[in-house]
């Protein structure tokens, strides 16, 4: 299996595969909490979300390719926090790498690449959100020097 890969901004022709990967991530999230159950139109939403983000100057969609095939994806956007300093920050929304290409630092490289891109768009800080029970993601971000600053608590309205 090839070990050389390329990280670059997503192009139109990456859309189908990137959509699949984003959908896979959402299905994975459902494993951690029923309140993260994907909508029935997940694929469609994922595709439209990617299209919007790719067209948005505040958006970022990166893909990682092995032998030309998309095997990983990262999405992020610039956010104005308004009340806090630094105000302009980068929000990492999705990070997903296909199972066969994990455990070789691809995710960390994606994050580093995204961090540079977001900084060039004005972000002084980046942050990520993921299911509280996803201990793999927890370990991943901790290892990369992230720390927990806010928490999201949810409750159904009944």
């Amino acid at each position: 299996m090839s070990t050389s890969y390329e990280i670059r901004e997503a192009r139109k022709e990456d859309l189908e595969r990137a959509t699949e990967l984003i959908s896979r991530l959402k299905y994975l999230n459902a494993e951690f909490d029923p309140l993260l159950t994907p909508v029935e139109t997940l694929e469609e939403e994922s595709r439209r979300y990617l299209e919007e983000l790719m067209a948005d100057e505040h958006g970022l969609v990166l893909v990682v390719t092995f032998e030309g095939r998309v095997e990983g994806v990262l999405t992020a956007r610039i956010v104005d926090r308004r009340f806090y300093d630094p105000r302009i920050v980068g929000q990492i929304i999705d990070v997903y790498v296909m199972p066969s290409f994990r455990r070789r630092g691809v995710g960390a490289q994606l994050l580093e690449h995204a961090s540079r891109e977001l900084k060039s768009k004005g972000a002084d800080m980046i942050f990520a959100e993921f299911p509280a029970k996803n201990m793999i993601a927890n370990g991943f971000y901790n290892k990369l020097g992230f720390r927990e600053i806010t928490a999201i608590f949810a409750k159904e309205t009944g």
Binding site: R24, Y27, L28, E31, M98, P99, S100
Partner: peptide
């Protein structure tokens, strides 16, 4: 390696995941 439930296997059945 690309089966739809592959990530679920990683969490619930690491042995099957490895085979996949």
């Amino acid at each position: 390696a690309e089966r739809a439930d592959i990530d679920k296997l990683a969490l619930t059945h690491p042995w099957k995941y490895k085979f996949a």
